[in-house]
Structure formats: C-alpha cells, structure tokens
Computed example of a mutant assay.
Amino acid sequence: MDIELRHLRAFSSVARHRSFSRAAEELLITQPALSRTIAQLENRLSVLLLDRSSRHVELTETGARFLDHAERVLAAMDDALAVVQHRGALRLGFSWLLPDPWAQRTFSRFEEDTGASVSLSRADDPIQALRQRTVDIALVRGDAEVPAGMRAVRLYDEPRVAVCSRDSDLARFTHLAWADVPHWALVINTVSGTTGPSSWPDGQRPAKVIETANYDEWLETVAAGRGIGIVPEVAERRAQHPALRFVPLVGAPPSPVRLVHLPDTQRTLVRRFLDAALRSASE
C-alpha cells in the first residue's frame, strides 16, 4: 500500500486533537488539505478510521487500534532521525539576555543527553526568526499571544524591576509601586519588550510612551533620561551600565518566560530540548 509518513502524521494529529481544525493548525496545512490526506489514508486501507458523524471527531474501533501502531511507526522514525541528527545542532533564538542559571543548566543537560549542540542566534524578533525558519526554537518573554500554528511552553515567571537614569528623580526612591508607573514617561521595546501600555487597564495607562525597536535602543534611551523602563530582574544582574539605576518594583505582575516552536521543525531535538528546559526550570 502506498502509505506515507504524512498520512500517519495527519491521522495521529487529528486523533490526538479530536479536531480537524486544530490538527490543521498544528501541521500548518489547510483543513481541506488535511481532510483529503485522511481520506486518502482511509481509501488506501479500505477502512474507516475516524467517525465524523458526531459534533466531535472520534476514533472508530479500527482507528483506535491503528493509532497505536501508527504512533509506534512515527516514534521509530523520530528515533532514526535522532541518530542522524546526533551531531547536529538546535538553533535557539533569543532577543536579549538569556535567563541564568536556567540557560547554562539546560544547554549542558541537552548536549549531554543528545550529543547535539545548541547554536545561539540573537534576533530582535525571535518569532519572526521562527517564521523564517532561521531558528528551531525561540525563547520569548512576556504574555503576547503566540501566532497560530506555533506551540508555546511556559517555563516560569520572572519578577519585574524598574530602571531609570542615575540622574532621574526615581533613582532616589527605595521602591516604586506598579500602580504609580503610569505617572512616569515609559520607555518600551515594541518588538521584544515585556511591558507596554496594554499592561495596564484602559484609563490607567502611561500618559507618555517612548517607543524603541530593540533592547539596545531601549537601554540607551533609558540611560539618556528619556523615561523609565520596566524589565525582568535578570537585567539588574547582567546589564552593567554606569548610567542606569534599578529600583525595586512593588505589586507588579510577573513576566512569563516561554519557549515557542513550530511543530514540524527538528521534532526529536526540540522535544529533547523542551524536556531539558522544563527540568532546569523546576530546579
């Protein structure tokens, strides 16, 4: 029978999601194309694998038995690819300052477990780098919505801290309340920043916002006294800039750290990296 891996991957995805629309989104194909692929598989096997009569897609009895075998075949193929990729590299995209010690623990664990290496790629917009497939997985901060077709895994939350010029009035404060941040001119990174006007409800947002396009522009704009910034506290440990002062922030919501990837890229290595990342995040 002319059964291809794409047939098995399509069937496995629909079976897991119990939905053609969600499976199509995961596989980055249109729903009609996915439906045709499943129909081809059923025609070539001369069996009905999925019951489409109810509101939700369900496996037939034959489909449930076939799924077990199909997933074993897919797992075996992933293992075979892992052998080929054993000396390969996983490309990790990031916009600024990788979290520590999470990054060092994760890289060491992943490389020891797989024999592959982690290749680092700094990009102002890691999500765009994923779209262009110049990276395999991206570290993303903040709670911006992940584009359709991509998967996100939340690692942990980072506390936030305020930052200002050493000549700013804020530099003399012992702390700053989150509710008082909108009273100051706020410098934001529109591409990869974690804090922006939408971080506050309507009517409570900063009156003045200065936009920058990347971390370096944001850093120097704050240092020049154009406004204050809000950033995960890793910057306080790592940003060695003589013109900056960091001020504790009280009552601020945490900033999530996530790994984002496409489901069809370096499947085995991405899965192994996610395993290592989650273990490191829990330590």
Score class of each variant (00 low, 15 high):
residue 90 L to M: 08
residue 36 R to Q: 15
residue 221 T to R: 09
residue 252 A to K: 05
residue 15 A to C: 10
residue 197 P to Y: 03
residue 255 S to N: 13
residue 7 H to V: 12
residue 261 H to C: 04
residue 102 W to E: 03
residue 143 D to Q: 08
residue 240 Q to I: 14
residue 146 V to R: 05
residue 275 D to T: 15
residue 22 R to I: 02
residue 246 F to I: 05
residue 47 V to P: 08
residue 243 A to W: 09
residue 279 R to D: 13
residue 113 D to M: 11
residue 273 F to D: 10
residue 212 T to Q: 01
residue 43 N to Y: 02
residue 44 R to H: 13
residue 100 D to S: 06
residue 129 A to V: 02
residue 261 H to T: 03
residue 254 P to H: 07
residue 84 V to N: 13
residue 35 S to E: 14
residue 9 R to S: 15
residue 232 P to Q: 06
residue 151 R to S: 15
residue 151 R to T: 15
residue 267 R to D: 06
residue 64 A to E: 15
residue 34 L to K: 09
residue 84 V to F: 08
residue 17 H to S: 12
residue 128 Q to I: 06
residue 262 L to Q: 11
residue 94 F to K: 01
residue 85 Q to D: 15
residue 102 W to C: 04
residue 171 A to P: 04
residue 62 T to W: 02
residue 49 L to W: 05
residue 77 M to C: 11
residue 1 M to C: 07
residue 70 A to E: 05
residue 229 G to Q: 04
residue 153 V to S: 07
residue 23 A to H: 05
residue 273 F to K: 09
residue 52 R to I: 11
residue 46 S to I: 12
residue 229 G to P: 12
residue 280 S to K: 07
residue 201 P to C: 04
residue 179 A to D: 07
residue 142 G to V: 08
residue 278 L to R: 14
residue 12 S to D: 15
residue 156 Y to C: 10
residue 276 A to C: 10
residue 157 D to K: 00
residue 199 S to N: 09
residue 154 R to D: 13
residue 140 V to G: 03
residue 52 R to N: 10
residue 22 R to P: 00
residue 147 P to T: 04
residue 233 E to N: 14
residue 72 R to W: 02
residue 91 R to Y: 10
residue 131 R to G: 12
residue 248 P to S: 04
residue 260 V to I: 06
residue 13 S to W: 02
residue 37 T to Y: 08
residue 281 A to F: 11
residue 27 L to D: 00
residue 216 D to Y: 12
residue 151 R to I: 14
residue 202 D to A: 15
residue 222 V to D: 02
residue 15 A to Q: 10
residue 97 L to D: 10
residue 213 A to V: 13
residue 205 R to M: 09
residue 25 E to P: 00
residue 211 E to G: 04
residue 11 F to L: 09
residue 52 R to C: 06
residue 277 A to C: 09
residue 249 L to C: 03
residue 135 V to W: 04
residue 67 L to G: 01
residue 44 R to E: 14
residue 209 V to D: 05
residue 86 H to S: 15
residue 91 R to C: 07
residue 118 V to G: 06
residue 57 V to C: 10
residue 43 N to T: 08
residue 37 T to V: 14
residue 97 L to P: 07
residue 123 A to V: 12
residue 154 R to N: 12
residue 163 V to S: 08
residue 4 E to H: 15
residue 206 P to T: 02
residue 64 A to V: 01
residue 87 R to A: 14
residue 124 D to W: 02
